[in-house]
Computed example of a mutant assay.
Amino acid sequence: MWIHLVAFLGLSLAVICTPGPDTALTVRNAFSGGRRSGVWTAGGVAAGQAVWTLAAGLGIAGLIQASEPLFLVMKVAGAAYLCYLGVQSLWAAWRGHAAQAADQSELRLTPVRSLRQGLVNDLANPKMAAFFMSLLPQFAPAGEGAFVTMLGLGLLFSLLTFAWLTVYSLLIDKMRALFDRSRVRRTLDAVTGGILIAFGLRLALSDR
């Protein structure tokens, strides 16, 4: 059992540390709203993963994966959401810091908004259904205790993700003085916006 747990932790850390849409969104929000926005976004991502864990254990994720129309709808929705967030960042880069300050009340990343973005970004990605359905059963024993084991491993994965993304947010917050410079801020907005759009297009064009 301990060997399986160590193997799961090693595989999980390799996956979590590989940058993806969730990482890009967390970094983007930490750039824009500081440590608090980054941490709340990470919380939303982890909550989304916890939902996928439960869905995998109950077999719902398998139904999503098996249903071509539902999988396609979720894939298009997830891609559109990533592109929408990316366009927001590009728009902020084009307008500049002064224009952003003018409508700060409208675009401000509150904890609720950051949490919601992280949650929706994760839940709108149907590849998460395929990922949890393929990962968790490998480390769960066959029989009666499978559901509890899958639930525990999935929640562990979610906590590790939250911890990793929180580290990103804290590191970015330490360098906020540099990021708050107008030229640097606009460059970072443009880069993160482009990355989010690239992830969205990759999701939209992927087979499965």
Rank of each mutant, 00 (worst) to 15 (best):
A198E: 06
L85V: 09
G96I: 09
L160G: 06
I3D: 12
L58I: 07
N121I: 00
L170F: 15
T18V: 02
R186D: 11
H4Q: 14
F131N: 06
F157W: 03
N29S: 11
F71H: 04
V112N: 14
K174I: 09
G200I: 00
A130R: 03
F131T: 08
M1K: 06
G154I: 00
L123R: 00
P141R: 04
A77W: 01
A198T: 08
S206Y: 10
L171I: 12
A163F: 03
L90P: 03
F132A: 03
L203P: 01
W40K: 04
Y81N: 00
L196E: 10
Q88V: 14
W2I: 15
Y84S: 07
Y81R: 00
A50L: 08
L115H: 07
G78S: 00
L115E: 08
P69T: 04
M150K: 02
A80Q: 01
Y168P: 04
Q138M: 15
A98G: 02
V167P: 11
V191A: 08
N121P: 02
V148I: 11
W52C: 12
G118T: 03
D22G: 09
M175S: 15
A163I: 05
S105E: 14
L170N: 09
A99Q: 12
L178T: 14
V148M: 09
P126N: 08
W2T: 14
L156P: 01
K75W: 03
L203A: 05
G200Y: 00
A30D: 10
M74N: 00
L153Y: 00
L90C: 07
F199R: 04
P69N: 10
T149Y: 02
V73W: 12
W52R: 07
P69E: 05
S114Y: 10
L170Y: 13
K75N: 04
A93G: 11
G152D: 04
A14G: 12
A190D: 06
G57V: 05
L58C: 15
W94V: 14
F132S: 05
V51Q: 07
L107K: 15
K127R: 09
R36K: 12
S134Q: 14
N29W: 04
T192F: 15
T26D: 10
L70G: 12
P137V: 11
S105G: 10
L188I: 13
L115T: 05
V191P: 06
A79E: 04
